[in-house]
Nucleic acid binder design. Structure first.
Length: 187
DNA sequence: CATGGGATTGACT
DNA sequence: GTCAATCCCATGC
């Protein structure tokens, strides 16, 4: 399965968020199918890029198809895919995966057995993948951290939309997407 | 230079 | 249901 090309990420961020459902994130020996995403855009206050170009948001304003990784609550690394053309601050938060390869490695990193709990949240999946802040700015179209196009089995998947989770601003936008019926989405 | 607020999680009442 | 852990970074003095 081919990697997603830079032109895919250059689309409007909501289209990228919807289009990433069913695609496969891979890093080293582990991989998983994306089953939940959220879109963020510099025009709305929930997005880090709302404050403009700073050291923190430089990745979001940079070229599409890169990883934006930041630390949340001092504990978790959260993984995003940078979207829209360079100069626009937008990204898609990867919120949950269905584990595919390296499940035992994920279990060891997470200290858990249950497959449904390995990647069912944005902080959980980075721990399971081994993604840390050093991945910030990594090129998803050519580096060791990659996102591949939907496998055939996922091309018919039905996708639902609703409000984003865990934010205090712009709560009303239906910019969260998930695979209908998946047991692997966050609670 | 000091301060305060998170795109969360897991443990506990 | 509540709450603490913990650190990066934007902001303000």
């Amino acid at each position: 399965m081919r990697r997603l090309a830079q032109q895919f990420y250059a689309q409007p961020v909501v289209e990228v968020a919807r289009g990433l459902i069913g695609c496969v994130v891979e890093y080293g020996q582990v991989s998983g199918v994306i089953v939940e995403t959220e879109a963020y855009h510099d025009s709305e206050p929930a997005c880090h890029a709302f404050v403009g170009l700073t050291a923190r948001t430089a990745t979001l304003f940079g070229p599409p198809g890169r990883a934006y990784v930041y630390r949340s609550y001092g504990i978790h690394a959260l993984l995003n895919a940078v979207a829209e053309p360079e100069g626009v601050g937008a990204g898609v938060l990867i919120r949950a995966l269905e584990p595919v390869d390296g499940i035992d490695i994920m279990r060891a990193r997470r200290g858990l057995e249950l497959v449904e709990e390995l990647c069912s949240g944005p902080g959980k999946l980075t721990q399971a993948l081994g993604v840390e802040l050093t991945c910030n700015g990594a090129d998803l179209t050519s580096g060791p951290l990659s996102i591949r196009a939907r496998p055939r089995a996922w091309q018919q998947a039905s996708i639902l939309a609703g409000p984003r989770i865990g934010i205090t601003k712009a709560v009303e936008l239906p910019w969260r997407f998930w695979a209908a019926g998946s047991r692997f989405v966050s609670r």
